[in-house]
Design a protein around this nucleic acid. Structure first.
Length: 440
RNA sequence: GGGCUCGUAGUGUAGUGGUCUAACACGCCUCCCUGUCACGGAGGAGAUCGCCGGUUCAAAUCCGGUCGAGCCCGCCA
């Protein structure tokens, strides 16, 4: 007996008049009496199936959404059907029966209100089957692909660096500690030192990987595990970095709006306004503008307040026609030891952050590549011991000939959140980890 | 870590001292329905109102504790 070849639901419209077999999940039943509409989902989308035969329909009695089916019927062009085609007179075979109803909506948008997010994540394994949910992650995959493509176009080498580390490195953020065969180890809060070491090898490197922060933050923009997009390149100055990041964000947005139209439409996402060259403003200028506009005095502060970040993005959108804006001229007093101070003003760091739709998505900087300066900053700024395994090998590479170099870390979750138009990073993360969630 | 807010059927909500023997919507079950697409209609099942204690003649409702969750701030991507 010849087995009918499976086709994808998206191909049904190409097979009008022919016999087809599809396999997928039951996504929705609509019983109208003499005829029933089924929606069947597979990796390519959803197709409508029309069932008139009572015997066939009876097979689905008690079968809940999620039941795995095989249907063989006749493909038909049908303008009234979603997708313009449907399957008629199917023979239905139940491959995996599901008798229990899903605890969360599959065929209608799931409420993302903050109070309900615990439910959203508790039933994540099933809720992701909702087309609005899976669309977020199709877009995220598309963003990831675009990032990779842009890096490759610019001759970066993709790397993977250790996440298990012997000691705390960067300082600042809290690190997770764990037992490593009796020795204390930490989880990487950043690939910082490794990507810098590898500039000495490949000149340009990038990594898209998880990083871990043990900060007890409970906000809409923090997680204890997130995906960091790290880039690092040699023989550049800060203007190159700015130019690269402008190009990157533009490329990603254009790519996604070209390749993920259907998902973006499902999500009612609006395309960000961007300029080829993303505008830049110094921190002190932002403080002045914000203070003048809101009456809240931030002049002299060494960072931007969250509300200030939202405000300047609104300002940028309205006056500069850009949903993204660079923040330049950060105070050197708070910079990391591996950062470089500006040569024209030692009190300012060679750092730029990129704000996008109200949140910081990128921090970038030039690194101190002069060995003696770096050693001095390590001791003075971080109080670090050069012989500590966390610094020793980094310094080894830095001593062996490092050009002027710089790079950045970008939050993939935040980028996805803002491109899609969500209001919490966790919504853009498949299985988010935060201070009180370690499962699923 | 600091501040504020919220826990009511599987899910989302209403009810804020007595009329609650807890209501509505979605989902589920039974029946009707031949073009639905958030299908429609009739009926039904499903909740010791997070938990513990207290106040009161009377508590989903007020108070205390506890557990869980969310938001803002700090910090960052």
């Amino acid at each position: 007996m010849q087995v009918m070849q499976r086709i994808l639901t998206a191909d049904v419209h190409n097979r009008a008049g022919k016999s087809v077999t599809v396999q997928g999940w039951l996504h929705k039943k609509r019983l109208l009496g003499g005829l029933t509409f089924l929606l069947v989902r597979d990796r390519s989308g959803v197709v409508q199936v029309v069932v008139k035969d009572k015997k066939e329909l009876e097979k689905l009695r008690g079968m809940q959404i999620g039941t795995v089916l095989e249907l063989s019927g006749t493909a038909k062009g049908e303008p009234r059907a979603p997708g313009g085609a449907e399957i008629h007179n199917p023979k239905i075979e139940i491959l995996v029966p599901v008798k229990e109803e899903p605890p969360i909506e599959i065929d209608k948008p799931i409420d993302h209100r903050p109070e309900n997010q615990d439910t959203l994540f508790e039933y994540r394994a099933i809720g992701l089957r909702n087309l609005q949910e899976s669309a977020i992650f199709k877009v995220r995959a598309s963003i990831t692909k675009a990032l990779r493509e842009f890096f490759y176009q610019n001759e970066f080498t993709e790397i993977q660096t250790p996440k298990l580390l012997a000691a705390a490195t960067e300082g600042g953020a809290e690190v997770f500690k764990l037992d490593y065969f009796g020795q204390e180890a930490t989880l990487a809060q950043s690939p910082q030192f490794y990507k810098q070491m590898l500039v000495g090898v490949f000149e340009r490197v990038f990594e898209i990987a998880p990083v871990y922060r043990a900060e007890p933050s409970a906000t809409t923009r923090h997680m204890t595990e997130y995906t960091s997009v790290d880039g690092e390149m040699g023989f550049i100055d800060i203007s190159h970095l700015e130019e690269f990041l402008s190009g990157l964000l533009n490329f990603v947005v254009d790519y996604v709006w070209k390749h993920s139209q259907a998902e973006l439409k499902t999500l009612s996402a609006s395309k960000p306004a961007l300029l080829k060259k993303i505008p830049a403003m110094s921190m002190s200028e932002i403080h002045e503008k914000y203070t003048e506009a809101t009456g809240t005095k931030t002049i002299g502060e060494r960072d931007l307040r969250p509300d200030e970040e939202r405000w300047i993005c609104e300002y940028s959108k309205e006056h500069l026609k850009s949903d993204a804006i660079f923040v330049t001229d950060w105070p050197a007093s708070d910079m990391k030891f591996y950062h470089k101070a500006q040569t024209k003003d030692k009190n300012l760091a060679e750092r730029i952050d990129l704000l996008f739709r109200g949140v910081e998505i990128v921090t970038g900087s030039m690194r101190e590549h002069r060995y003696d300066e770096l050693l001095k900053q390590l001791k003075e700024k971080a109080g670090g011991n050069p012989n500590d395994p966390g610094f020793k090998y980094f310094l080894m590479a830095m001593k062996a000939g490092m050009p002027a170099h710089g790079g950045f870390g970008m939050g993939l979750d935040r980028l996805t959140e803002k491109i899609v138009g969500l209001s919490n990073v966790k919504e853009a993360t498949l299985f988010p980890r935060d201070i009180n969630r370690l499962a699923p």
